[in-house]
């Protein structure tokens, strides 16, 4: 056993990278759930994003356009979910699960011709000056653009939800859709927007796996990341700041267990891997602040 082989700076840096897909997807789902909608189809939207990312980046030769295409793919899929749950008032839990099944099939079909192709490189941005800082430079300032975009989005969502009027309205819709409706807010329209934002974020998260992390297309390559994203939202108590912590915790456990193994430590991998989920349950119980949005998962119909 040689724990000194683990360089904490590198560990933190790779943790940021490993957490980016789940962070992006979870951030989208957080907004969706804050609007009172539970979309369990994150995995389906992520994998569709992963496929679309490969397709768009390969066809255009540009990784950023790949991400744009992935966001669009996730968004379109979530649009289906929105139509079903918001206009046709189908049950959100069942629809979300069906969306995952649909997305897995769709992505595999779309990606068929792209197995084994390598997407265009996605360069790292060594931020001048900052990247040369001693400790922080190595951890935080030598990543690719999507890592920063993810962090930026967390800040933006935090600002939007807590500091803007539109964010307040969105939260009101999630807390009590009947009251929000009575106040004249377009509940369905707001939820459409939230759901589609969630879809786009999930698509970005999926594409980060297929364009940066791996980078290649393989069927089912998100391998459950979408489900982890759902757990992170709960862990975070629907707060963007804690979401970041949650994503690093869930992503970190994976990176940490791999590193501990490489250092020769015999660890019970399964038990370590389940610990964040147990922690999430404990957080749910202990922190009363983690109260879910009041209308979460309920169907809304403006009856007269």
């Amino acid at each position: 056993m040689d724990l000194t082989a683990i360089d904490p700076l590198l560990l933190l840096a790779s943790l940021m990278v490993a957490s980016t897909p789940i962070l992006l997807a979870a951030l989208g789902e957080l907004v969706v759930e804050r609007a009172g909608v539970l979309n369990l189809g994150v995995e389906g939207m992520m994998i569709t994003g992963a496929a679309c990312g490969i397709i768009f980046s390969t066809l255009t030769g540009n990784a950023w356009l790949g991400f744009a295409g992935a966001a669009l793919g996730g968004l379109l899929l979530s649009f289906l979910f929105a139509v079903l749950t918001q206009l046709l008032l189908s049950n959100q839990v069942a629809t979300g699960l069906a969306l995952t099944l649909f997305g897995l099939g769709l992505s595999a079909l779309l990606g068929q011709g792209f197995a084994g192709t390598r997407p265009p490189a996605f360069p790292k941005l060594d931020i001048p000056l900052l990247s040369n800082l001693p400790v922080m430079g190595q951890i935080a300032f030598r990543h690719d653009g999507m890592v920063y975009l993810g962090l930026g989005l967390v800040a933006a969502v935090w600002y939007f939800l807590t500091r803007t009027r539109a964010g307040l309205v969105l939260r009101a819709v999630g807390e009590n859709h009947d009251a929000a409706h009575a106040l004249g807010y377009p509940v369905v329209l707001i939820r459409f927007g939230a759901i589609m934002f969630g879809g786009a974020c999930a698509g970005l998260g999926g594409a980060y796996i297929s364009l940066v992390r791996v980078p290649q297309w393989t069927e089912g390559m998100t391998a459950g990341a979408g489900w982890i994203a759902l757990a992170i939202v709960v862990f975070a108590g629907w707060k963007p700041g804690r979401l970041l912590l949650g994503a690093y915790l869930f992503g970190g456990v994976t990176v940490l267990q791999l590193n501990l193994q490489a250092a020769g430590l015999a660890i019970p991998v399964e038990y370590l891997s389940m610990s964040p989920y147990v922690a999430t349950i404990i957080v749910l119980v202990v922190l009363a602040a983690g109260r879910k949005p009041g209308s979460l998962g309920q169907t809304f119909h403006a009856s007269r």
Binding site: A98, L99, F102, L104, G105, S107, A108, L109, E219
Partner: peptide
């Protein structure tokens, strides 16, 4: 995958 899509 086509079958999965169909089921979905």
């Amino acid at each position: 995958s086509a079958i999965q899509l169909f089921q979905g």
